[in-house]
Every structure is written in C-alpha cells, then in structure tokens.
C-alpha cells in the first residue's frame, strides 16, 4: 500500500528540502505536509466523539506546525522515522490534550499554554498553569491582530517558526541578522505594551 506522501507525489526528502528552502517552496511544502495526512482528521473525529471537529482540526494544524518546526530546527531525522509517523504521534498527543481539556472543563487559553510549554517538565508546566489561572485571559490573546503586518510576520518568523536572525534577515530583506533582531525586539515591546494596555482597560471597566 502506498503512503499518503507517495500518493501526493512528494517524498519526505522533497518536503524537507522545500520547507528548508523558505519562501514560496516553504508554503507549498507546508501545504503538501498538511494535506498528506488529512485523513488523520477524519479518523480522529470518529475516534474522539467527545471532541468537536473544530478542536480536532486545530490540533491537526498544531501538529503539522510542530513537525515543520522540527524540520526547520533540524531535529527531524528522516532515516529514523517518516514525516507521516511523526505527524501521527504529535497529532494523537494533541488530541489527547484536547480531550483532557474538554473533560476537565478547562479554558481555551490553557490549551495554548500547554502548547507553548509542552517541552518543559511537568512540574514547571503545573507551576505556570497555577500562576496564570489567577489572570483573566479573555481578549488578551487576540492583541496580535492590532500589531502592524510587518511586525506580525517578523514575530512569526522568530518566535513561531524559530528561524535564526540571519535567516529572517534574508527572508524579510534586512541587511543583517542583528537589524532583524532589533526590529523584532521593537515589535515584541509593542506587543507587550498592547497586552498591558488591554489589561489596564479591562481592570478599569471592572
């Protein structure tokens, strides 16, 4: 039986090369990876009746992006496993996380916290979880929308995909990696300021 990637006509090597190339090939192969195992979503919908399809879809997107991040940071070794296998493992874990969140009546923000702290030891995850529980997280998570488009892209490249400053400089047309880092620093300051402003507005309303 042929693997999903063979059906799409792209091997793991091709996908990895495309993702590492950046620019349009990156977008193309990110999509190839996404579509390569889309059937996992349908399987998960049947497997987890407690979860809504939208939650499973979110989990799949997170899983695809997690695989991409592993490829970009050279953590993925194609000799050891297939991309589809890794994607399946991560996706299964994400679905279980979602299931825990739903059964424990946790908030949406807790899922996001789990995603960004999943590499930390469980003790540290619990520490952060209890620390954040005191805060009202509603609306704060959508502040990114208020940032300038260039800032959003820069933050995505650095903090979401984990590109190195030199790579970001090349992608976004900065002269050096340092100037790209400085620009990103200003953007992060702006983001933090927006979050603070949002908190002040919320407490003033109360």
């Amino acid at each position: 039986m042929s693997s999903p990637s063979q059906k799409l006509g792209s091997s793991d090597s091709e996908i990895i090369e495309g993702l590492l190339a950046g620019g349009p090939p990156f977008e193309k192969y990110a999509l190839v990876l996404y579509r390569m195992c889309e059937n996992y979503i349908h399987e998960a919908v049947k497997k987890h009746p407690l979860l809504e399809a939208a939650d499973i879809h979110d989990a799949y997107i997170d899983a695809v992006d997690a695989v991409i991040k592993k490829v970009l940071s050279n953590q993925f070794k194609k000799e050891v496993a297939k991309l589809s296998t890794l994607l399946y493992q991560i996706f299964s874990n994400k679905c279980i996380d979602q299931l825990r969140r739903v059964t424990n009546h946790k908030h949406e923000w807790q899922r996001n916290l789990n995603t960004i702290t999943e590499d930390l030891p469980v003790k540290s995850q619990d520490f952060l979880q209890s620390m954040m529980e005191q805060d009202d997280m509603n609306d704060i998570l959508s502040v990114m929308e208020k940032l300038a488009h260039g800032c959003k892209e820069l933050i995505m490249d650095f903090d979401y995909w984990g590109f190195k400053p030199e790579e970001v400089a090349e992608r976004k047309g900065y002269k050096t990696g340092k100037s790209a880092s400085q620009a990103k620093y200003r953007c992060m300051e702006e983001l933090r300021k927006l979050i603070k402003d949002e908190q002040v507005t919320k407490s003033a309303k109360k």
């Binding site: 960004i116 952060l128 997280m137 995505m156 979401y160």
Partner: peptide, 10 residues
C-alpha cells in the same frame, strides 16, 4: 507567557 500565547493563537 501571554505574549507567546497571543502569538500561538494568531
């Protein structure tokens, strides 16, 4: 953490 979560959501 909030900034990183906002990035994650976006």
């Amino acid at each position: 953490l909030k900034a990183r979560m906002a990035i994650q959501v976006y």
